[in-house]
C-alpha cells in the first residue's frame, strides 16, 4: 500500500473513531447532568448507568483514535483539549436535556441508530473497531430497550405527556437525518432498518412520525449547534485550569 493510500485509510479510521467516541462522550456528559435530579431514584440510577456505559465506550473509541492518529494524543487530550470545531459528535447528542420527554426521545432516536451501527461495525475489517463495537453493542441493547419503553410510556400516557413527547419528537427530528449521512459508515440499508424500529415504537406510543425529511447537518465538518460550546466549557474547565493534574 502506498503511503498516500495508507494515510487516507488512517484518516478515515480516525474520523470514524472520533464520530463514535465524540457522540458517546457528549451524550454521556448530557446524561451525567441528570445525576441527582432524576424524577425517581431508579431513573437517576438508570440515566447515570447509561452515561457510564457511554463514557466507557467513548474512552475506547478515543483511545483508538489517538492510536490511529499517531500524534501522541491520548483519550484525555482528545476529550479535554479540542475546541468545539474539532468535535465530530452527532448534533442530536448535544441537544439540551429539556424535560424528561426530550431526554428520552433524544436517547431513543440515538439508541436505535447506535445499535444498528454497532451491529454493522462488529464485522469491520479492523479488528480493533470490531472488538469495541461488539462490546458496546451488548450495552446499547439495554439502553434501547429502556428508551423505547419510555417513549411508549410518555407518548401513550396522559394528554400532557403525549403532547410534550410529540412536540419534542418534532423538535429533534431534523437532527435524526444526519445520522445516516456519515462518510465512514455505509448508510445502505441503515435508514430502512432504523425506520422499521422507530416506526414500530412510535406506533405503540401513538406518536406521529414527522413528515419532514430535511436533515440538519454540519457535525462532520465541526459545525455544531450553539449548545455544544457551553457543554464543553463545563466539561473541560477543570482539565484546562489544572493541566496535567492528578488526584
Amino acid at each position: 500500500m502506498s503511503a498516500v493510500a495508507a494515510s487516507t485509510v488512517d484518516a478515515s479510521l480516525f474520523a470514524l473513531c472520533l464520530r463514535l467516541g465524540d457522540s458517546a462522550l457528549i451524550l454521556s456528559q448530557r446524561l451525567g447532568a441528570w445525576c441527582g435530579h432524576g424524577p425517581a431514584l431508579e431513573e437517576d440510577i438508570a440515566l447515570t448507568n447509561t452515561a457510564l456505559d457511554l463514557l466507557g465506550q467513548a474512552r475506547l473509541w478515543l483511545s483508538l483514535a489517538g492510536e490511529v492518529e499517531g500524534a501522541g494524543r491520548d483519550e484525555d487530550a482528545l476529550a479535554y483539549w479540542r475546541d468545539d470545531r474539532e468535535f465530530r459528535n452527532l448534533l442530536i447528542t448535544e441537544q439540551p436535556n429539556g424535560d424528561y420527554a426530550q431526554t428520552m426521545v433524544r436517547q431513543f432516536l440515538f439508541d436505535a441508530w447506535h445499535r444498528l451501527v454497532l451491529e454493522r461495525l462488529g464485522e469491520h475489517h479492523d479488528s480493533r473497531v470490531a472488538a469495541i463495537a461488539a462490546k458496546a453493542h451488548k450495552e446499547v441493547l439495554y439502553h434501547l430497550r429502556r428508551s423505547a419503553d419510555w417513549v411508549v410510556r410518555l407518548g401513550d400516557g396522559t394528554e400532557e405527556s403525549h403532547a410534550r413527547t410529540q412536540a419534542t419528537l418534532d423538535l429533534l427530528w431534523p437532527h435524526a437525518g444526519e445520522m445516516f449521512l456519515i462518510d465512514e459508515i455505509d448508510g445502505e440499508g441503515l435508514r430502512a432498518d432504523w425506520d422499521a424500529q422507530v416506526d414500530a415504537v412510535l406506533a405503540d406510543a401513538t406518536l406521529c412520525r414527522p413528515a419532514s425529511t430535511w436533515a440538519q447537518q454540519g457535525s462532520g465538518q465541526g459545525r455544531h449547534t450553539e449548545h455544544l460550546s457551553r457543554l464543553l466549557a463545563e466539561m473541560q474547565v477543570v482539565a484546562r485550569a489544572h493541566p496535567g493534574a492528578h488526584w
Partner: peptide
C-alpha cells in the same frame, strides 16, 4: 468469537 445475536428489528422482542 462472540456470537452475534440475530437481527431482531422489533425492539419489544429484545427483552
Amino acid at each position: 468469537p462472540t456470537q452475534r445475536p440475530g437481527r431482531v428489528l422489533d425492539i419489544r422482542s429484545l427483552d
